[in-house]
Amino acid sequence: MADLSPIDLQKALKGAEYPAAKDDLVSVARSNGADDGLVKKLSETGTKRFDGPNEVQKAVFGNE
């Protein structure tokens, strides 16, 4: 899997409306052509709902 960056995450979630459920963000990422690794990391976060993109970024990249 290629290294993922916060910029990749921003591109993947372009057009997402917050607050948003994790499943909705996974769908947005898939429709935006996100890398499978990024979609997997997003779908495996323990958070079910996000108030904004900063929360998503912390959930996806915070444990690295």
Rank of each mutant, 00 (worst) to 15 (best):
A16S: 13
R49S: 09
F61P: 01
S5L: 04
I7D: 13
S43M: 11
F50W: 00
V56A: 00
G46I: 04
G33W: 12
S31W: 00
A20H: 02
K58V: 09
A29Q: 04
R30W: 00
S27M: 12
A29D: 08
G15H: 10
L4W: 09
A21K: 15
D8A: 12
P19E: 11
G62P: 07
P53N: 07
V28Y: 00
L9N: 08
F61E: 02
K58S: 11
L38I: 07
F50I: 08
G46W: 04
F61N: 00
E44G: 06
G52V: 07
R49N: 08
N32G: 04
R49G: 01
L42I: 08
P6R: 13
K40L: 13
E17K: 15
K11C: 01
P6C: 03
T47S: 11
V26K: 12
K48T: 13
G33H: 12
D3F: 01
D8T: 06
L4R: 06
D35H: 13
L9H: 07
K48H: 00
L38G: 08
D35C: 00
R30Q: 14
A16Q: 05
F50L: 08
L9I: 09
R49L: 10
L42T: 05
E17V: 14
Q57Y: 04
N32W: 07
G37L: 00
F50R: 10
T45S: 13
A16L: 01
D36H: 02
K40S: 14
Q57P: 04
A16P: 01
Y18Q: 05
G37F: 06
A29H: 07
P19R: 10
G62W: 03
T45V: 14
D3A: 14
R30M: 12
N54P: 04
S43Y: 06
Q57L: 02
M1A: 15
L13F: 09
S27R: 15
K48Y: 02
K14H: 12
G46S: 15
V39C: 10
L4E: 03
D51R: 15
T45N: 09
S43F: 04
L42C: 07
D51Q: 15
V39D: 01
V26H: 08
P53V: 14
D24K: 14
E44P: 03
Q57V: 02
K40A: 15
L42D: 01
A16C: 06
A16K: 01
N54A: 13
L25E: 02
D24P: 06
A2T: 13
A20D: 00
Q10H: 12
K14I: 06
R30S: 10
D3V: 13
P19A: 10
P19M: 11
D23N: 14
K11I: 13
F61K: 02
K48V: 08
L13V: 10
G37H: 10
I7Y: 10
D23G: 11
G46E: 15
N63I: 04
K11S: 11
K41N: 08
D3G: 12
A16D: 01
K22P: 09
K48M: 07
A29M: 09
T45D: 02
G37A: 13
G52F: 09
A29G: 08
L38R: 10
G15W: 02
K40P: 00
D3T: 14
D36Y: 03
L38W: 06
L38V: 09
A20M: 04
A29C: 09
L9M: 05
S27I: 09
L4H: 05
A16I: 03
T45L: 10
S5C: 04
G15Q: 09
A59G: 05
L25W: 04
Q10K: 15
F50M: 04
